[in-house]
Design a protein around this nucleic acid. Structure first.
Lengths: 327, 327
DNA sequence: CTGAAAGCGCTTACAG
DNA sequence: CTGAAAGCGCTTACAG
């Protein structure tokens, strides 16, 4: 059997109350008693039961994190940061990969509630799952969940502008944007709005192709094929994420386009991974660490009962100048 | 306040015992009572407290997963699979990114113990952290933890043979292997042993360069530079993971080597991600899903008290024929 | 400075 | 078929 506080008490010759006090460094305790207790704990290899603690304290120090899938490098990196920051702050992470399935996400929410998490960080659409009586503090990254839910994101508008201007500057005549699922309103849509604004200011026509979200990177390439069929004169593409950018580039090359001579491409996200293995890809770098940090900090503040004036926080992006938009 | 079982009991006009019985579908209960209870639960939006349940049952349905970092696509993918399989089986995942830091890993082990996890899946070196009285069931992936710990991996020897033979078949004269940290014995070392065996059988000299593990992909490239300086005649490289393969290839190209004409390269892992964005890279595909599935199943069996005859399970790999080893 | 008692929310023998 | 009581391992007023 795992040793419990009573066992420690017996060995140390004190009451359970005293052991608990030592454990929590609470109230006055003679240093002699303290020492006895610590020795007893070591002797029987005691470790407190956090389940029991959490039950009494109504505080689990558990945070639920819901992402589509850590198999996507952006989410994998984001989750790694989130978890490590949580760990530094004394919180533990219950991981949920929703695979873009509303059903799965719904079950995860209930699971998190049952497990008494102190709060949740959500990086998925959450199709209306949160609207009623909110059970616990939540912070969203790059998604609007509900009126009162804090959302953290990169400056998607700035990123969209940067990307679009980069293509114009590189001399592209026919610039097309490829974006994700169009059916839901997310901060990431600002990338598209910025693109449209820049195109308009430059007297161009904006045109966006949408790729539906799919689990595990297996997104079909049909939309990309359609794009090149309908717009063979395309010479600039702003893809809303790097994987999409790379796959579009590959398809274009298979069609005979040379990048960057015939076609210039810029992506979005700029994960460490992509910059490491695809440094040639021009892209917009999201400040992923800052996003993770702000999400965790904001959530912990809400857990601690502090309210926030601002319900939205945005971090500036930066340009990674590769070779896919020319020299 | 969150509703508890007592509140449900009050609303339904029964005792807490009865509510619990309905909840657990245990013992005989009239269907009329059952219905009343379910209605009451719905009415007050009741959800059971799993902390309290786990405390009593001494079963948390919590599994700890320790990986270096989900920011590495192999681990990101592995963790996604593990978590989803756990979810299917009714288990929840407490995620730990150890960043290859022994200290951090040690703290995670204690944290998991405090949180009463039912078991742990480890994908890190665990430098002797587990040897003494093992606290709970554990399964390792690609690492030897201790005598009695079950380990799951891809058939590293087969993979090493495949990779080495592929390079020989492609006509390479001077084949070099780049591997990870040499200081610890892991199943992945079989990749190197197989390479050495194949080289010997072919009358070649085996030569391996080791790259120390580093967190977050920031591994220095010094060893690679050294390799090309010392062995400019290298014309075949077997890299022990795909990221390493890609980065080596990039450095070689910057030196003027053409791949595959002057230099042929083969990697290892073959994640969905790499195959999607780097289909040209020849690599050995690990059966990641099967590894994840077997690890979870084995762990759950151990949790359920079933013992295993075999303490090691290996799954066959396959070759992804890209273009970096020729046509 | 220390201990006995009650309670966190649940479950399970034990009665009836 | 249903309920009162005790207990999972911990913590915290309340006494002393």
């Amino acid at each position: 059997m795992k040793p419990k506080i009573q066992d420690v008490a017996k060995v140390a010759g004190v009451s359970p109350t005293t052991v608990s006090r030592v454990l929590n460094d609470r109230g006055y305790i003679s240093s002699k008693t303290k020492e006895k207790v610590f020795e007893a704990m070591k002797e029987i290899n005691y470790v407190p039961n956090d389940l029991a603690r959490s039950l009494y304290n109504k505080r689990s120090y558990l945070i639920g994190v819901i992402v589509p899938s850590t198999s996507n490098p952006f989410f994998g990196e984001l989750v790694a940061y989130i978890e490590n920051i949580c760990d530094e702050r004394g919180y533990k992470v219950l991981l949920c990969n929703s695979l873009h399935e509303a059903d799965k996400e719904k079950k995860y929410w209930e699971m998190l509630r049952r497990n008494q998490v102190d709060g949740v960080i959500v990086v998925t659409y959450n199709r209306g799952l949160i609207d009623k009586k909110q059970q616990f503090p939540a912070v969203a990254i790059d998604h609007y969940l509900a009126e009162n839910i804090h959302v953290v994101s990169s400056d998607n508008f700035q990123g969209g502008e940067m990307a679009s201007r980069e293509l114009i500057k590189a001399g592209c005549k026919k610039i097309i944007h490829i974006n994700g699922d169009a059916s839901l309103e997310t901060p990431a849509n600002n990338r598209q709005y910025a693109y449209e604004k820049v195109m308009q200011e430059a007297g161009r026509t904006a045109e966006t192709y949408h790729i539906p979200d799919v689990a595990f990177l297996e997104s079909n390439i049909d939309i990309i094929k359609q794009l090149f069929k309908e717009r063979p004169d395309v010479d600039g593409i702003f893809a809303s994420d790097d994987l999409l950018a790379v796959r579009t580039m590959q398809y274009a090359e298979s069609l005979g386009y040379r990048v960057p001579q015939d076609l210039k491409i810029i992506g979005y996200d700029g994960t460490c991974l992509i910059r490491s293995i695809y440094p040639k890809l021009t892209t917009i770098i999201q400040p992923t660490y800052q996003i993770a940090e702000n999400a965790v900090e904001t959530l912990i503040q809400e857990i601690d009962g502090k309210t926030h004036d601002t319900k939205e926080k945005t971090f500036p992006v930066s340009l990674w100048k590769g070779e896919t938009t020319g020299e």
